Amino acid sequence: MLGLQYFSFEELWSPIVFFIFAAIVILYFYLIGPWRERHYPMEAAATLKQKTFFVGGVVLYYLANGGPLELLGHLIFSFHMTNMAISYLVVPPMILLGVPTFLWRAAFSKPFWKRLRPMMHPLISLILFNILFSIYHVPEVHEYVMLNFTVHRIYFFVLLISAFMMWWQIVSPVPEWSRLSGVKKMGFIFANGVLLTPACALIIFSPEPLYPMYNDPNVWVQAMGYCLPGDTTWLLEQFSGPEYFNFLPPIEDQQLGGVVMKLVQELMYGAILIYVFKEWYQKENKDSDELPSSNPNPGTA
């Protein structure tokens, strides 16, 4: 299906990457289990929801950046956009919600991190993520990043960090470090949706294919070197180009990719908006209930 039968198990599943992510999951359970009991015995154990979020986030990120979805993302543009949506819009909030608060405090309470505190200003994280994400989808930038593998790794790593910085402002896994109130978080989410829209619109409404990697066989075969070992010229000998694997014409595939990105963005931001509103509403009600009554002895004059 989709031509995956032409690739080996190693090319599809990247065993080394799999074991790296498996080690991350094992480390997570060690930290929330034996390590917590030894160093933070008074802290509450991680809940089932937190464990599910973390493991689910790691699995999704592996599939999008080391499993079959990564390979499909080099064959079909709409899969590439699906991977981008998973990696930067779905996984970061799952990881942030999945890691218990005491681990965040233990990791980032050191004096060193205070020097980087200005970088965590909500406005900086908002602009940084959306600029990096939008610039990447400029056709010339996209082609350069996809064909220069060292730049590819660095750019995607920085983009991932900026995604975590942006989502941190919304999810706020450590309450006392939060810089935004409930209402401001809702405005922050709305601003993200607005800033991400131009990149999606560029992709959806372009009258012609924008990305040579998905319609130029020579560019495509070079880019495939990122996820296939050795010489990739055999791809051109066996297949006509990326269109061999695609079930849609390039322009329709590109439009579908933009629609997928926009839909995932709207769904994630909508779900988080509900989460933030519920959290804010509960806090406001709790604060109201705790206010002292103007007449502490009802029924007396």
Rank of each mutant, 00 (worst) to 15 (best):
I16R: 07
I16G: 02
I16F: 13
I16W: 08
I16D: 04
I16V: 09
V17D: 11
V17E: 07
V17I: 10
V17Y: 10
V17H: 13
V17R: 11
V17F: 13
F18D: 02
F18S: 04
F18N: 00
F18W: 09
F18A: 13
F19Q: 07
F19P: 00
I20N: 01
I20D: 01
I20G: 00
F21Q: 04
F21G: 00
F21Y: 15
F21R: 00
A22R: 07
A22F: 11
A22W: 05
A22Q: 10
A22H: 02
A22M: 14
A22D: 06
A23V: 03
A23C: 06
A23L: 12
I24E: 05
I24V: 15
I24M: 14
V25S: 02
I26Q: 05
I26V: 15
I26M: 08
I26D: 06
L27K: 01
L27N: 04
L27V: 11
L27G: 08
Y28A: 04
Y28C: 04
Y28P: 03
F29K: 00
F29E: 03
F29T: 03
Y30R: 04
Y30I: 12
Y30Q: 06
L31S: 05
L31C: 06
L31A: 09
L31W: 06
L31E: 06
I32N: 01
I32G: 02
I32D: 00
I32S: 01
I32T: 15
I32K: 02
G33W: 12
G33A: 09
G33Q: 10
G33N: 08
P34C: 04
P34I: 09
W35L: 15
W35D: 12
W35S: 15
W35A: 14
R36N: 10
R36P: 11
R36E: 12
R36Q: 14
R36Y: 07
E37S: 11
E37P: 06
H39W: 14
H39T: 15
Y40S: 13
Y40C: 08
Y40N: 10
P41W: 09
P41A: 12
P41T: 10
M42E: 14
E43I: 02
E43Y: 00
E43R: 11
A44Q: 13
A44V: 03
A44H: 07
A44T: 07
A44N: 09
A45Y: 01
A45H: 08
A45L: 06
A46V: 05
A46Q: 01
A46K: 05
A46L: 02
A46C: 05
T47G: 08
L48S: 13
L48D: 12
L48T: 15
L48G: 10
L48M: 13
K49T: 14
K49P: 00
K49R: 14
K49E: 08
